[in-house]
């Protein structure tokens, strides 16, 4: 009987190692561990054996059964693993094939730039306001110390609006600065605003000139605003927009509605200041014009210049993505070619 058990064990283990599938494994189980299997019958017949033999055969039979069951478990797990691996392999794909196309939308590069710039100033306590693009001569020029026949009008080639009476000259604003006046007319200090918007110039267009472009105006007026604050605010702005490693330069410039007048430049990020085509061999790239609000401008809006001081600045928006991405023609912005717009 014991030899019989030995034989069962060795046959079963031998066969098991050759099995390929879960179905064969099930057949094997029925054959060796099923109700009708020799092993089961031996176990069932134990009671009929003499006590001495019963003990030895019983122990051996149970041992074989446990061994076969353990082997069955292991084999089942191994086969399942193989099965899974095969089924995964059947699902292999070429991962280099392109994905399913989605319609992709983007914001216009100017919109993106306006937001980026406004966000910087918002974080410094400025509010974003907007104003009219069609303006009175008064706001665009006169209130900004540029009366009719002032030579500084040469700096702003103007589109005039055809009005029937023609009494009060109407124009397309040439800069966002008229909003300095409008804001101060309707609020009292402290003032801290940025004003993005379209402006227009009566100019033949070329790679660096557009008849319509965007500017962002800034204005801060309060009791203790100084040129040092102007420098600090614009320095912070320049570092955030262009990177902490850029050098920033402030020089004297002239705009009729500020005194002192300021121009801010950053060192050229192509040549690093040694001079190249981008910076016109100066090593510096002009970014914006600024200055302390002229006392005559303050007086005009009933702000007492002995109590209040302020700074103002204005920058062209398209110039910044042009510098950042190396765009050489400003006309690309508003001709709306998707091959251009898709790159931002």
């Amino acid at each position: 009987m014991l030899e019989k058990l030995d034989e069962i064990r060795s046959n079963a283990i031998d066969e098991l190692s050759n099995l390929q599938s879960l179905n064969e494994l099930e057949d094997w189980r029925i054959r060796y561990l099923g109700k009708k299997s020799t092993l089961t019958q031996i176990l069932r017949g134990l009671a009929a054996l003499p006590l001495e033999q019963r003990k030895a055969v019983g122990a051996s039979a149970n041992e074989v059964k446990a061994l076969l069951e353990a082997a069955l478990g292991q084999k089942r797990a191994a086969l399942k693993e193989e099965e899974l691996a095969r089924s995964i392999e059947r699902g292999r794909i070429d991962v280099t094939l392109p994905g399913r196309p989605l319609a992709l939308g983007r914001l216009h590069p100017t919109t993106q730039m306006v937001r980026e710039i406004c966000d910087i100033f918002i974080s410094m306590g400025f509010q974003v306001i907007e104003g009219p693009e069609v303006e009175w001569d008064y706001y665009n020029f006169e209130a900004l110390n540029i009366p009719p026949d002032h030579p500084a009008r040469d700096m702003f080639s103007t589109f005039w609006i055809d009005t029937e009476s023609g009494e009060r000259p109407m124009l397309l604003r040439t800069h966002t600065s008229p909003m300095q006046i409008r804001v101060m007319e309707r609020t009292r200090p402290p003032v801290r605003v940025v004003v993005p918007g379209k402006v227009y110039r009566y100019e033949a267009t070329d790679a660096t000139h557009e008849s319509m472009f965007y500017q962002i105006e800034g204005l801060a007026v309060d009791e203790n605003i100084t040129l040092a604050d102007l420098k600090g605010t614009l320095y912070e702005f320049a570092k955030r927009l262009f990177g902490a490693e850029r050098r920033v330069r402030f020089r004297c410039d002239y705009f009729p509605f500020v005194e002192p007048g300021v121009e801010m430049a950053i060192d050229c990020f192509v040549c690093g200041g040694s001079g190249c085509r981008l910076c016109g061999n100066t090593g510096w790239i002009e970014i914006l014009g600024a200055g302390m609000v002229h006392p005559d401008v303050l007086r005009r809006v009933n702000y007492d210049p002995d109590v209040y001081t302020g700074f103002a600045f204005g920058l062209g928006v398209e110039r910044i993505p042009m510098l950042r991405y190396g765009i050489e023609d400003i006309r690309l912005f508003y001709s709306n070619d998707l091959r251009f717009l898709r790159q931002f």
């Binding site: 306590g125 402290p190 801290r192 605003v193 309060d222 040129l227 600090g232 912070e236």
Partner: peptide, 15 residues
């Protein structure tokens, strides 16, 4: 020279 002048941030209250 503007670059020789100090650089600060506005200290007043916000509007």
């Amino acid at each position: 020279g503007y670059d020789e002048l100090p650089t600060t941030l506005p200290s007043g209250s916000l509007p």
